[in-house]
Design a protein around this nucleic acid. Structure first.
Lengths: 199, 199
DNA sequence: ACCCGCATGTAAGTCGTTACATGATTCT
DNA sequence: AGAATCATGTAACGACTTACATGCGGGT
């Protein structure tokens, strides 16, 4: 079973969905850390059905084209459960943007500073979006978030990771831009542990 | 030109290297955010040479097999420079471990807590290793790190990103494990902004 | 003799992206 | 008539992984 398969099962464990619905959720990032196109999803659904992890039923619609709605099976759910706590083989991180930093010493200063300012903004925007979602979740799901066995908690947990990830990335971009512009890194309300930061 | 091509050029812009040497550096993560196997590197070197980005010369060795040492060309360096400040097309992040969190509500509590504790340790170990490297760099490269146009600064910059990444990941793992074990998240010497954290 | 480190390649297969392809229904 | 959304697929290609393959020289 592929990781994509488990991503799909993760969504189907919450609600029955068509390939089209799955595609929309996968575009908006499953738990913010996986994604796929419809061209990958449809064949994978066929494989999942072949393996007995999902079943489908055709739902006839009058105002739209008919659709196949997929449902996770008991075996699918068992497999998903077992996968969740199995430590994944560590795969190397590939981040083209950070790789660029490795050659930033060759770059024009002004262009480089602009690059990091802009990338920083992108991450701050994503962060702002995530923070809105968090505020909404904390309001709408107050009770659900107290137990870790609710799907709401799991969604919230991945969102937390997204928030941390974007925050850290944005901070690093600011530090890069500040360094390139030869300012003291902007220490916006940050920790002040021992003072030997900055390079 | 592929991203791997630029990763290789990034290394060759610092020193001439053989395919074997490149492989070792790519295993230890170029700037900690890219990696490749020798089976990908050798053909890529051939393509780079074909495109005029690198040249090679055979170095005869008496105590070891001969080797091809690659050198970046002026065109290669120009291309690398231009690439550095070009904003990359944003690729979706894929992180199987975080994806698992999206289905953690289905998991056995004890197993899940163990998973997050262990993954947290892995990130803390990586962080500790990075911090050692940082300490060493700050000692050995004191002057070089004051100017952003030194390769040492660029190496240090990607290391900073690695440190932030691992720190954030480890913190999230701790928060997950604590949540699953129903403790108040362990706020080890952390920021105390407004107090409405915790899910 | 055998294994290890150095050194360089090729082949098969998987995963993912982009593009190709079709068709229903609704709105303008 | 044409565009937009819903809906489901296939094909070609590129990137990456795993495995296959070979050969030198040094140490045990």
């Amino acid at each position: 079973m592929t990781t994509l398969g488990y991503a799909i099962l993760g969504l189907l464990s919450r609600e029955d969905l068509s390939g089209y619905d799955l595609t929309r959720r996968m575009a908006g990032r499953v738990g913010y850390f996986w994604s796929a196109r419809h061209s990958q999803i449809y064949p994978e659904l066929a494989r999942l059905e072949d393996g007995g992890y999902v079943t489908h039923s055709v739902v006839e619609q009058s105002e739209r084209p008919d659709k196949k709605v997929y449902k996770i099976t008991a075996e699918g759910l068992d497999d998903l459960k077992a996968w969740v706590t199995q430590p994944p083989v560590p795969r190397p991180i590939r981040d083209e943007f950070t790789l660029k930093a490795y050659s930033v010493w060759l770059a024009d200063k002004e262009e480089a500073a602009r690059l990091y300012r802009e990338e920083g903004l992108r991450h701050e925007e994503q962060l702002a979006h995530y923070e809105e979602l968090r505020a909404w979740m904390q309001g709408a799901w107050r009770e659900d978030l107290t137990s870790t066995d609710s799907p709401e908690f799991a969604t919230y947990a991945t969102l937390r990771r997204g928030i941390g990830y974007e925050k850290e990335y944005a901070e690093w971009c600011r530090w890069m831009a500040d360094s390139i512009e030869r300012r003291e890194p902007s220490e916006k309300r940050k920790k002040s542990k021992s003072g030997k930061n900055g390079g």
